[in-house]
Design a protein around this nucleic acid. Structure first.
Lengths: 142, 142
DNA sequence: TATACTGTAATATATTTAATTACAGTATGA
DNA sequence: TCATACTGTAATTAAATATATTACAGTATA
């Protein structure tokens, strides 16, 4: 994933989990413009991230006037690991570039071993993020 | 860290852990050129990474003719978490950009909460990588 | 004292990320 | 029914970051 995407997605979801409260009383569908204003990024980027969240089944959107986005299921049913997965592009420790020198005996094998290592790091992160729901995360706000 | 730095550092250390074997019989100090050739990257980049590894106390270098680098301690005393720390630049899940809109009540607090979350993800990775030594990692090669 | 290295700065190139512009499509409600 | 306020997405540009390259002073060796 590009650095920052995870935080942006958590931010989007936290806003959606707090719809109806505070500034958002009376809101049902939250516009990309509103969310972008909160995060201070471009609305198009918000719509792109929401597109991923929608594909992951975490968010639903409504087109047209008064449209916007909302959680597709209760915040207590959304785990932070689900968010990580929807954002996932490549291992947190980096892509294994397949450009090692083929005649070096170490280089020959290193990529596959590093990939195994990376996978276990991914697993550790997913396990950790799987311990917290969006509900628990956004309950921290007062 | 920039993506790929961790893999490059592991690669460097694995080569140094295998000095004397195979292609490296008779070698004592391994040149940045040799390492760069194995990874297929620029020698200057290798020297930069080795500079970090040296500051972390994992590697030592010798200048001048027939110089190069070697492990500063036995591979069995180097944990992959040490490598991670020497490469560390920012949380694996991304920097928390401090550019959220100050008047949004959610934005106000989200950064600090995300930072706590990121720290726990870092901890999970360090714990995982702390289970393996460079020795164990390079023993996988045959 | 020529040679083969390291260490590091400075610069250039390539790649990736984010912002912006543009516009077709859709639901709403006056 | 039609102006309005949204979404969805493609295409482009701009900014940031990563990597490669060039350059060269310093150092140990034979």
């Amino acid at each position: 994933m590009s650095h920052g995407r995870f935080a942006i997605n958590i931010h989007i979801l936290t806003i959606l989990a707090n719809v109806g409260k505070g500034e958002m009383v009376g809101m049902v569908w939250v516009s990309s413009e509103f969310i972008a204003g909160s995060i201070d990024i471009n609305p198009v980027l918000v719509r792109k991230e929401i597109s991923h969240l929608r594909k992951a089944g975490l968010v639903e959107s409504k087109e047209g006037k008064n449209g916007g986005s909302a959680l597709a299921k209760p915040a207590s049913k959304i785990f932070l690991s689900d968010v990580y997965k929807s954002v996932y592009e490549r291992p947190v420790l980096g892509n294994v570039k397949n450009h090692s020198n083929a005649h070096c005996p170490i280089a020959q094998q290193i990529n596959e071993h590093i990939e195994v290592l990376y996978q276990s790091a991914e697993d550790a992160i997913l396990e950790k993020l799987g311990c917290t729901t969006l509900q628990q995360f956004s309950d921290k706000f007062h």
